[in-house]
Design a protein around this nucleic acid. Structure first.
Lengths: 119, 119
DNA sequence: CGTATCTATTGACAACCATCGAATCAATCG
DNA sequence: CGATTGATTCGATGGTTGTCAATAGATACG
């Protein structure tokens, strides 16, 4: 998480030299960032963000058919968004008879929330 | 923020009726979601997320030329990412002489962080 | 002025994305 | 079984994105 960066000169330098020394960069943040960016990307659509919002407060209680009228999109488009969220590990679903109930996977948003959170 | 959803029947219904009654949907969340989704979208790239990470801890101290060697991308691509972050209102820049110094705008991440935050 | 350095923009291109309608799969009921 | 309803997948289509090379703009120095 800590990108320890040696802040470089920033004063005039004789031309011919590059701007700055190469700066050390902790590998650790790389895959962490990739994971969090994937979650953020999945939330980077208003409909998906609202979907997560609805699901967080009605976990396991809303079937897909109830979600459709909330947004002015077709059913297949909604299914597409749900798939994106599923692929990002944010939600999961459970089928019961005819209906499919989605829920936000516990802890799925924690890493991003913590990073984003009050510094 | 609260999507108050009347959880619908979910029991067998006589055929011919639609699955569920249309569900009331608070308008309030709509533009809120759009704003937050825009921020999330901007963070939805590993490089941009790392950029924000670096800038948060070295606000006003890192010039663009120092950021380039941190990632294996060209200078123009980095500039492109910075522009994206600027357009999303996440960062801003200040020029001093030859150099451009970027910083994370205070509070830019708060709304999303709060929504995402520990429920 | 001219030249070197740093940053931003432009143009191009492949990859990805959101969206829809239509087809398909799944499960319940008669 | 056959019909119906809900959910997912498929195919197509405009739009957006990430990337680079090349270029342009801006600032400092001589």
């Amino acid at each position: 998480m800590n990108v320890d960066l040696e802040t470089a000169p920033k004063t005039k330098r004789p031309p011919g030299e590059p701007c700055c020394e190469p700066v050390a960069y902790p590998e650790v943040a790389r895959e962490e960032a990739t994971r969090m960016a994937a979650v953020a990307k999945a939330l980077g659509d208003p409909i998906r963000l609202q979907l997560v919002d609805v699901l967080r407060e009605n976990a396991g209680k809303v079937c897909v058919c109830e979600l459709v009228p909330l947004f002015e999109i077709s059913q297949s488009t909604l299914s597409h968004h749900l798939r994106k969220l599923r692929e990002a590990g944010i939600v999961d679903s459970e089928r019961k008879g005819l209906w499919a109930f989605y829920y936000v996977r516990p802890g799925a948003l924690d890493e991003l929330a913590r990073w984003l959170g009050p510094a």
